[in-house]
Design a protein around this nucleic acid. Structure first.
Length: 478
RNA sequence: GGCGCAUUCGUCUAGGGGUUUAGGACGCUGCCCUCUCAAGGCAGAGAUCACCGGUUCGAAUCCGGUAUGCGCUACCA
């Protein structure tokens, strides 16, 4: 790479970023970091209709959460309107663009007509050759024009895509697209080309849906006499039905994944593998590893289905790799939010830290933590007698509880080892199997049939709570 | 309709003419471990590499066509 790498993430501020957009941001960021280049954030707010208040902050916050730091920006397109206007006027001046006074209604009718006649839709170039006098006349009538690009009527434009190779388009199939809208805002085409040029963008990495408009962009560059950047069109992200990932497929916004308890490092790793791979087996990688190995050559051409299952698995891997301390800290907000209201706040982090090792390897998302730890925090347990008894005889279950209570009361130290040493012999003594025996105790102590290991759980729960729960359970069986 | 892109296990992917009886991962099934649930270990099912032709001694890999999917075809990005 002989020139400095300068890439950008250029979202429009329409709400929470879609995971597809985030993946685009990620690839740009990875490419910049790998090449010791510059990562720029640019807000493309040229559509006043779709703009949403506060979206810029949300975008920045999302990038920050994922650890994608930017070196320049955010540049805001709506603050650069005069630049685009000047550029558009320059092209008009040079005869490479023109004013168009056609009303939206006429354009609409024209398109409908074309569709009906099975003609390819596109602007019919009615205003392309208006004389200066005609233009003046229209303006005098108070009509506000748009500026359209004067497409070459012949020839072809070749796009060299770093991922797909050379793609050729016939110019006569491209219409005179709008550069400057009547509200004075540029279209994407104009704004992004002008900005990419002035911001010295070296590589444009964007979603595949832009491939078709790249010839327009190239033609614009050449109209301005500018050197175009390199292009790389990234494969799209699909839903399970292979159509473009959208809300009806479930979560699509990055913040939803954050709220569902996915770790940012999981998202980075997972998203990096959607359209890129290191080799034939490496899946779990730190950001540093991904940055070190990232390359355009290994980006695939094919669209990828977003596999929730695999995401969950990967998040589990990352959660298990957390230190118990960090796991507790990261779970805390979810626990604060998810525990029943009667549990006293604030939640004790140290207690959560003690619980952490018991549940960590059982959790796939932080959002499930409150569900797993609630019985540690509630005062009393209202466990179901039927669940308590299970497949045993009622009397036998009661005996299990009684004997255990007696034995536990004499345990000198409320720790896993001594408790287990004291209780386990009872199993054989009663001629039972460990499964059913411990099962009764598990339900009594935790209120559920699946839990972390019994004695470890009891140690953390404490003598008082355990004995009272066991006794309360025994009471239910008499 | 036109133009463009793509097509390897259900999914993510490796592979770029002979090393491939097409490798890994998720998920699935079974076994082991085990106080339950997980985690972990092992094993297994799962892809005639979309199809049809061609090039070649030899093709998942190169070429052409077909089909299918997707994208674009706005004063949206």
């Amino acid at each position: 790479m002989d020139q400095q790498v300068r890439v950008r993430f250029a979202p429009s501020p329409t709400g929470y970023p879609h995971v597809g957009n985030i993946r685009t941001a990620l690839f740009n960021w990875l490419f910049a970091r790998h090449n010791k280049g510059v990562f720029i954030l640019r807000i493309e707010d040229t559509d006043q209709e779709r703009k949403i208040e506060g979206a810029v902050e949300i975008i920045i916050d999302s990038l920050k959460w994922l650890g994608m730091d930017f070196d320049e920006g955010p540049y805001i397109q709506s603050e650069r309107l005069d630049i685009y206007r000047k550029c558009a006027e320059q092209l008009v001046h040079e005869g490479k663009a023109y004013y168009c006074f056609c009303s939206p209604d006429r354009l609409d009718a024209m398109r409908k007509q074309q569709m009906a006649n099975k003609q390819p839709p596109g602007y019919d170039r009615r205003c392309r050759d208006l004389s200066p006098d005609q233009v003046e006349a229209e303006k005098k009538q108070g009509k506000v024009p748009v500026v359209r690009f004067k497409m070459p009527l012949t020839g072809r434009t070749s796009v060299t895509d770093l991922i797909r190779g050379e793609v050729i388009f016939e110019n006569n199939l491209l219409d005179d697209f709008v550069l400057l809208k009547s509200d004075g805002y540029p279209t994407y085409h104009l704004a992004s080309i002008v900005d990419d040029h002035y911001m010295k963008i070296s590589h444009v990495m964007r979603a595949e849906e832009w491939l078709s408009s790249t010839p327009r962009h190239l033609l614009l560059y050449s109209a301005f006499g500018w050197q175009p950047p390199h292009f790389a069109h990234l494969p799209m992200i699909l839903g399970p039905d292979k159509s473009k990932l959208s809300k009806r497929h479930g979560a699509t916004a990055i913040n939803e994944y954050r709220n569902m308890g996915y770790l940012p490092e999981t998202m980075i790793n997972f998203l990096s593998l959607l359209g890129w791979s290191l080799d034939d087996k490496t899946e779990i990688m730190s950001v540093e590893e991904i940055i070190r190995n990232f390359s355009l050559e290994r980006i695939s051409k094919t669209a990828a289905v977003f596999n929730m299952n695999k995401l969950e698995w990967m998040n589990g891997v990352y959660i298990r790799n957390l230190s118990p301390q960090s796991f507790a800290e990261r779970s805390l907000p979810f626990v604060e939010q998810g525990l029943p209201p009667e549990v006293k706040r604030p939640i004790d982090v140290n207690y959560l830290h003690a619980i952490a090792p018991l549940i960590q390897e059982r959790t796939k998302t932080l959002a499930e933590v409150p569900l797993q730890v609630d019985f540690f925090f509630t005062d009393s347990l209202d466990c179901d007698p039927a669940m308590l008894v299970g497949k045993l005889e009622k009397a036998q279950a009661a005996a299990v509880l009684q004997k255990t209570i007696t034995v536990l009361k004499s345990v000198s130290e409320w720790k896993t080892e001594p408790m287990e040493n004291a209780v386990r012999p009872l199993v054989e003594e009663m001629g039972m199997k460990t499964g059913p025996f411990f099962g009764v105790l598990r339900v009594a102590v935790t209120g559920r049939t699946a839990s972390p290991p019994l004695f470890q759980t009891m140690e953390v729960l404490g003598r008082e709570k355990c004995l009272s729960r066991l006794e309360s359970a025994a009471g239910k069986l008499t």
